[in-house]
Write a protein that binds this DNA or RNA. Sequence first.
DNA 1: TGGAGATATATGCGAGTGCATCTAGTTGTC
DNA 2: GACAACTAGATGCACTCGCATATATCTCCA
Lengths: 149, 149
Amino acid sequence: MPKPTAPNLPSDAVVDAWIALNRAQQTAQLKIERALRDAQLPPCAWYDVLWELDRAGEAGLRPFEIERRRLIAQSNISRLVDRLAEAGYVERVPCQEDARGQRVVITPAGREMRKRMWPVYARAIGDAVGRRVLDPEAQMLATLLGKLT
Amino acid sequence: MPKPTAPNLPSDAVVDAWIALNRAQQTAQLKIERALRDAQLPPCAWYDVLWELDRAGEAGLRPFEIERRRLIAQSNISRLVDRLAEAGYVERVPCQEDARGQRVVITPAGREMRKRMWPVYARAIGDAVGRRVLDPEAQMLATLLGKLT
DNA sequence: TGGAGATATATGCGAGTGCATCTAGTTGTC
DNA sequence: GACAACTAGATGCACTCGCATATATCTCCA
């Protein structure tokens, strides 16, 4: 009979879930990151940001918006945008409604890079995740994992 | 009807699972790491290795064994052991059956630190995971995530 | 209106990471 | 038994991260 030892102390099932979560994420992440690197493409994080910016369109996004959507720490956003801008994939444009801020806008080169990355990224996700679970399992996973966020 | 576009290309459910996996892991990891830091304790990775070594007993483990159990890259193990040794929590002892290698053995101070970390670590797992899912859900999660490793 | 406090972003710093490479020792093969 | 191929572990390097802090701007209220 599973019985917590004290308030908030996790059951064995919860600890197991935490361990499995780490291992699974790490394993998948490693494979996917490697697939991109092997294809001479930028890392996963670049894709995610380019994707957000592509969806955002002309207006782009404020750095703090990217931060919230992607759960990246503020200082890391700042530098990730630096790198993306240096690579020519995004542009920082001044922001008239708030002089402290800026808008980050994707460039055509950025859009193209995102498109170029997708097949590789997708195949890697397929290999690392899709091949190992059935579709309904994947759905269940997404639902359960969603509760942790 | 969900139908893969091409061999190995992931369905939407799979992509969602991958995204949720990242977010969940990152969120939980961040909280747990912070809880340890706030309690002036070493990071999560130290706990994991100390735990393996504690279970391994007198004989300790070879670095490459730790590597396999914890999915840490070889070079990182090497340096993590450096740090643990410098902190006095483990000791490198020469390995007679293979002169290239060594055995990493936990010290009493290491055992004690592991014990000291556990309550904080456990509570953090409880907060980050246990509070958000029911026990059977955690079990299901562990099972599904296990398939990805 | 004049600050006080909040918010947006940048940056210095110390630490950890992955990759490539190096050294030393081991195993298998002829 | 000698040499090629392999394995264990260490290390230099470039890069990224998280944290703390700095700076500029904004908001709101006395």
